[in-house]
Amino acid sequence: MGRYLIRRLLQFIPVFFGATLLIFIMVWAIPGDPIAALAGDRVLPEQVVQQIRDRYNLDDPLIVQYGKYMGGVFQGDFGEDFRGRPVTDLLGQRLPITVRLALLAFGFEVVLGIIAGILAGVRKGGFVDNLVLISTLVVIAIPIFVLGFLAQLLLGVRFGWFPVSGVQHGLYSYLLPAMVLGSVSLAYIARLTRTSLIENLRADYVRTATAKGLSRRRVVGIHTFRNSMIPVVTFLAIDLGSLMGGAIITETIFNIPGLGRAVFEGVQRQEGTVVVGIVTFLVLVYMMANLLVDVLYAVLDPRIRYE
């Protein structure tokens, strides 16, 4: 396991450089002049423009810019935006918001998704099973922005159960956005759990567990559950990685100043350092999540060995 971990961590290096370089290139390939956009309708004096260009190394060849930027990253300097604010500050400000939203959404989808999946799976073809199958299909079929606006309109505006937007009401204001954000994954988790459980209930070891005189609850809850969770956990860890990346649509609908919004605004303003800085961070988070999946996999399924 130790050697496997080291090998995996070494693999991080090319993935990290490859991903950041691609993002770097893409941001700089966005048409338009970011500095001209900065000034709006006015025309900036040549001198000022040059000053800004120098400061952000905009006149260097792309690869040199990238090299300079990476050099900074390794010293903990993710660059600054056009207002002179370090990107790390922005991260520090936006990340807790996204983490809060992501964890709430994650908790929501994991708990409800797995419970729904199990209830559906133990009685295949029953009422609960059909209910879960149909409702998850509806959730998967509806685009997230429709779902978001609908939830906001009904639960926020019409019934007034939840804050409509913003994060002024503490954790409470994250509830509705988290449910919207987690809904599609919830549907996938429920279906995945259901299928996996049904498949495992047919396995020989379930018959053995029954023949041992164990209760149905124990046969399903201990023997089958552990085996059924193997594919679900894979999905969960990767999903946690993408949740951490922020949710541009959900954050926009509910006006939540998280990472997703920060990236979106960065792209609009062509602030390369912001976009690359945040995305670099997200790439790291995602890779860690992936590694976590593989390690968890081996914990859940002893047949998997990493050498």
Binding site: A203, D204, T208, K212, G213, L214, R303
Partner: peptide
């Protein structure tokens, strides 16, 4: 269920699939 496993027990053909792989 109280009789199963306790008074009457059973073993199966293929012990690889009949035993739970994760315990």
């Amino acid at each position: 269920r109280r009789v199963r496993g306790d008074r009457i027990a059973m073993i199966f053909q293929d012990a690889l699939t009949a035993l739970n792989p994760v315990f």
